[in-house]
Design a protein around this nucleic acid. Structure first.
Length: 569
RNA sequence: CGGGGAGUGGCGCAGUUUGGUUUAGCGCGCAGCGUUCGGGACGCUGAGGUCGUGGGUUCGAAUCCCACCUCCCCGACCA
């Protein structure tokens, strides 16, 4: 491609709305432009990257034996009602009406549509296992789109769905996909971790997220450097470091009620009472299988709901609504406390070790100070239910856990029969018995791979693409466009690369050399061939590696082989 | 949705506090001519703006008032 003939709009300055590097660089390098909040247009350069990523994914998916389909983005309300998600998904599901006033959802994910397809076409265990995938545009009306393509309302996703006759086969499929995902992210040149994850609104039992390690990531993860254990903090297991026997020696002070008008949150209360969050106890009212239970957790800790669910052997837990809280505590949200509470109380073990704690008084605008366990209230159970904190150790090998931030680029789930049961997608097994299909689902965000790659691979001058997803492999820069010799040589080199099917960009724009150099660095093409006076004089071709800044000067006849070997590095 | 900030040529900004001295300005970019040409050159000339939108106040509004729209940031069932 000749740059003089195409659209390559680079910018010296990024628009002020862009806050993180990948977003800034994607706009500056002319990969995309914003259309509306969370909605973007891909320019030629950006779309080439997306297609590169798409092809890597396609190749790896096909290797697993999965087949590619294309499902409609638009799907009828009735289908979503069958699964219950027309309600459950909430405002994040974009809905539109057709001219007959019939409602449609714009697909944020496609479990319903694929399950509908398969329930019509698959009748027998002989047709299983079956895995279908698609690479398609998705829509999610994000509560707050941000960071450019990182959290957009319209984005691109590969979603795969597996159908099996039993759990064992699902396990095999899950493993196959997990490995395919590793291949994909390896090939894209990302540094990532696969972590144990929560299943969220998609549902299912087991799931792993693939997290690209980056400071700007929205998720927090922990991992063990020694044994490789890794999990999202919201569900990470841990072993507490040895507890120092202090606390027991602290003298118990007298219980006191204090007025805290309008102070509800930990921040407000600690600010008002001039104390630290760790002296406070949060009394969270949960519904455990429908029954209200009070969970006591230290002010600076969070609840690991996954753990709680497991330890209580509960099917479903969730925070109670405000009405339930008022009924149970006799006070509005923000003033709950354990003293004289009539429901079951479960305390985190860190709370059990506290003395003279502060909590709500179960009365509006009042808190209690110097609360002590056993004296002022009794906990029905003491459990380790807080979420992981720095200092905690690996549940498998007891090494201290490392904290990091991650960008979720992929997620694999074992769904089980959640959707097949709701949509009555069944098959006949070997004995002729009708059973629901066992499902798995597997997603990858293409745009996020692109953004995450930039987060991990850039410098002060711009993007540094790994050659696997670079929009072009080589950029030829003509230093002086007026110099006929230079132009002629550049054309010659350009044509020889094109002939070899090396993806090449020729910067033949009528700009000064400096501007072209800046743009070349910004766009991050892995190899740059500079053709200037020096080239002509010395009769040697100069190749610069974007990543290392290393310059190779070679004879013209070795050009192609040198480029090939440099690209394979 | 709650809180904060911002909308002035394509991009980045000044001007708004105290309405008139601005014919609305600057840098970059864009067009033409000339000189230049290995890391965002220089000179001259020029094009491009309903100052987010709609009302209002006033002799006079980018500037004051009201309403709305858009964009960005922080937070969101953690009491």
């Amino acid at each position: 491609m000749r740059m003089s003939k195409g659209l390559f709009p680079t910018l010296k300055e990024a628009p002020k709305e862009a806050k993180i590097v990948s977003h800034k660089l994607m706009i500056r390098a002319g990969l995309m432009r914003k259309l509306a909040s969370g909605i973007y247009t891909y320019l030629p350069l950006g779309y080439r990257v997306i297609r590169k990523i798409e092809n890597i994914i396609r190749e790896e998916m096909n290797k697993t034996g999965a087949q590619e389909v294309l499902l409609s983005a638009l799907s009828p309300q009735e289908l979503w009602e069958e699964s219950g998600r027309w309600e459950v998904y909430g405002p994040e599901l974009m809905r539109i009406k057709d001219r007959h006033n019939r409602l449609f959802g714009l697909g944020p994910t496609h479990e319903e549509v694929i399950t509908d397809l398969v329930r019509r076409e698959v009748k027998s265990y002989k047709q299983l296992p079956l895995t279908l995938y698609q690479i398609q545009t998705k829509f999610r009306d994000e509560i707050r789109p941000r960071f450019g393509m990182m959290r957009a309302r319209e984005f691109h996703m590969k979603d795969a769905y597996s159908f099996d006759k039993d759990e064992k086969d699902l396990g095999k499929n899950y493993k196959r996909m997990y490995e395919a995902y590793q291949n994909i992210f390896d090939r894209c040149g990302l540094r990532y971790k696969a972590v144990e994850a929560d299943t969220g609104p998609i549902g299912g039992d087991i799931s792993h997220e693939f997290m690209v390690l980056a400071k700007t990531g929205e998720d927090r993860i922990v991992y063990c450097r020694k044994c490789g254990y890794a999990a999202n903090v919201n569900r990470a297991e841990y072993v507490k470091p040895g507890v120092k026997g202090q606390g027991s020696r602290v003298k118990e002070k007298g219980l006191k009620k204090v007025k805290t008008p309008g102070m509800k949150t930990v921040e407000e209360v600690t600010g008002f009472l001039k104390c630290k969050p760790k002296e406070l106890v949060k009394t969270l009212i949960y519904k455990v299988d429908g029954i209200p239970v009070a969970i006591l957790i230290r002010g600076d800790h969070g609840v690991n709901e996954r753990r709680l669910e497991k330890l209580l052997k509960a099917k479903e837990i969730s925070l109670a609504d405000e009405k339930t809280i008022e009924k149970v505590t006799g006070a509005p949200l923000g003033y709950s406390g354990p003293v004289r509470l009539k429901i079951k109380i479960i305390a985190d073990s860190d709370v059990a070790a506290m003395k003279n704690m502060i909590s709500g008084a179960n009365k509006k605008d009042y808190h209690l100070i110097n609360i002590n366990i056993d004296r002022d209230f009794k906990a029905d159970k003491v459990l380790d239910i807080r979420s992981v904190i720095p200092g905690d150790r690996c549940p498998k090998c007891k090494t201290k856990l490392t904290f990091s931030r991650g960008i979720e680029v992929g997620h694999v789930f074992k769904l089980g029969t959640k959707y097949s049961q709701a949509l009555k997608a069944t098959f006949s097994d070997e004995k002729g018995k009708e059973r629901p299909l066992i499902m798995g689902c597997y997603g990858i965000g293409l745009d996020r791979i692109m953004a995450a790659s930039i987060e991990q691979n850039h410098d002060g001058n711009g993007i540094i693409w790994p050659s696997s997803i670079a929009p072009y492999q080589v950029l030829i820069l003509v230093v002086n466009n007026q110099d006929k010799k230079q132009v002629k040589l550049a054309e010659e080199v350009y044509k020889s690369l094109e002939k070899e099917e090396i993806e090449v960009l020729l910067d033949d724009r009528d700009l000064r050399a400096g501007a072209k150099f800046k743009d070349a660095d910004l766009m991050g093409i892995p190899l740059r061939i500079t053709i200037g006076n020096k080239t002509i004089k010395e009769n040697r071709i100069e190749i610069k590696i974007r990543k290392t800044n290393k310059i190779h000067e070679i004879n013209k006849k070795d050009l192609i082989s040198k480029i090939r070997s440099l690209l394979e590095m």
